[in-house]
């Protein structure tokens, strides 16, 4: 059975859908966050090499995963918005950007706080860290473009071009640990052979990843609703100005 995605290009219908999902995503966020934090801070053992610093992983890795997946989602939305002129698609990308930027910032900061005790340095200019910093600047640039244009359709187009070109950075980040020599460890969860880490560490990691995903959905629903209503507000204000112009 095919789902007619065009139905959700209608902003009112889209908002009815997101309003229906919202209580579930909010509940799931609270549930996963509570159980994730319990496992991350209390129930899981320390690592035999890294000691207690392994607990930083439970906020570092989910943030990095979200930074990448939110950007990918934005690039796809922006492409859909550009090709099919769906305003909801453009506004979805716009609504997701601040959340993605926050996740990216958190991945960088918690990575630095993990790097100092384990690598002996907060920062190195290697491939993984540098490409992640570029991702952060892409997020900031994307948001700046939306602010820079008064004409929202022009802003959407310019922002879409940036986010789509910048998507080259996503596979670079993903494979940077294989392509270049780096201090950063290679992938240990999403590998061809399956996860390489013990379940006592994997459980809190996956719970926190689920919690971050649910949190993103919750924030996204709030933000995309604000964007849709803001667009409606802009149109109504423009109509008001035109009406006054005709009368005067």
């Amino acid at each position: 059975m095919a789902v007619d995605l065009h139905r959700f290009a209608n902003p009112a219908r889209f908002m009815r859908l997101t309003d229906a999902i919202f209580p579930w995503s909010l509940g799931l966020t609270v549930l996963l966050l509570a159980s994730g934090l319990y496992y991350a801070l209390i129930a899981s053992p320390q690592d035999y090499q890294q000691g207690e610093t392994v607990r930083i992983m439970f906020v570092h890795v989910p943030a990095a995963w979200m930074a990448l997946s939110v950007y990918s989602m934005m690039a796809i939305s922006a492409a859909v918005g550009w090709i099919w002129k769906h305003p909801v698609a453009d506004l979805s990308a716009k609504a997701a950007a601040p959340a993605g930027a926050c996740f990216c910032f958190l991945a960088l900061v918690t990575g630095a706080l993990w790097g100092q005790p384990m690598w002996g340095t907060y920062w190195v200019w290697d491939a993984r860290l540098t490409s992640m910093l570029i991702l952060f600047f892409l997020y900031l640039g994307y948001m700046a473009i939306w602010e820079a244009f008064d004409d929202q359709s022009k802003a959407a187009k310019a922002a879409a071009i940036l986010v789509i070109i910048g998507a080259i950075n996503i596979p670079v980040i993903k494979f940077s640990v294989d392509w270049w020599n780096t201090l950063h460890q290679p992938a240990s969860v999403a590998t061809m052979e399956g996860p390489k880490i013990h379940s006592s560490i994997l459980t809190p990691l996956l719970l926190m990843a689920g919690a971050y995903t649910a949190l993103f959905v919750t924030i996204f629903i709030i933000r995309v609703k604000a964007e849709i209503l803001d667009r409606r507000l802009r149109i109504m204000r423009m109509n008001q100005v035109q009406e006054k112009g005709l009368k005067g």
């Binding site: 801070l41 320390q46 000691g51 207690e52 610093t53 607990r55 930083i56 906020v59 570092h60 943030a63 926050c102 910032f105 958190l106 900061v109 918690t110 706080l113 993990w114 100092q116 005790p117």
Partner: peptide, 18 residues
């Protein structure tokens, strides 16, 4: 936190705050 409190807690703190 096994002597790593100055790294573990700020990581969680900044995540929660932001």
């Amino acid at each position: 936190m096994g002597g790593y409190a100055e790294f573990v807690w700020p990581s969680y703190g900044v995540s929660v705050l932001l």
